[in-house]
């Protein structure tokens, strides 16, 4: 029962240090910051171990998502699990946000 995160020793491609260098985007930094804040001693809404458990629960989908999208999914599910918001609240918020971003993207 090997989890999708347990990669040590599996076949994989070459590392290209130039091509695989990447400056974090502003969007990625926001996720990084949110994660730190939610886990900090002041809030302690969840622990990094819980975030790992959530990412591992992706199963084979683990490999479909880039790193920060996995983090984001973990945060969104953990906050649901902790009752910070409900699924209905999240769905409604996403609908509203999606509309806003679509308008913004088509305008730019």
């Amino acid at each position: 029962m090997r989890g999708p995160q347990d990669l040590g020793g599996l076949p994989a491609g070459l590392v290209d240090p130039e091509l695989h260098e990447h400056i974090p985007t502003h969007w990625e930094k926001r996720i990084d910051a949110m994660m730190t804040l939610l886990f900090d001693p002041k809030r302690r809404l969840a622990r990094v171990d819980e975030s790992r458990r959530m990412q591992e629960a992706l199963g084979e989908d683990y490999h479909k998502y880039p790193y920060y999208e996995r983090w984001l999914l973990a945060i969104s599910w953990l906050m649901l699990e902790k009752g910070v918001y409900t699924q209905t609240e999240l769905d409604e918020k996403k609908k509203e946000v999606r509309k806003r971003i679509e308008e913004e993207r088509s305008g730019s």
Binding site: T25, R30, R105
Partner: peptide
């Protein structure tokens, strides 16, 4: 650089709810 719209939507929604 912006992520795929699904990802940006989820991030913005979670952040605004929080």
């Amino acid at each position: 650089d912006r992520p795929p719209i699904e990802a940006e939507t989820l991030e913005t929604a979670v952040r605004e709810l929080l």
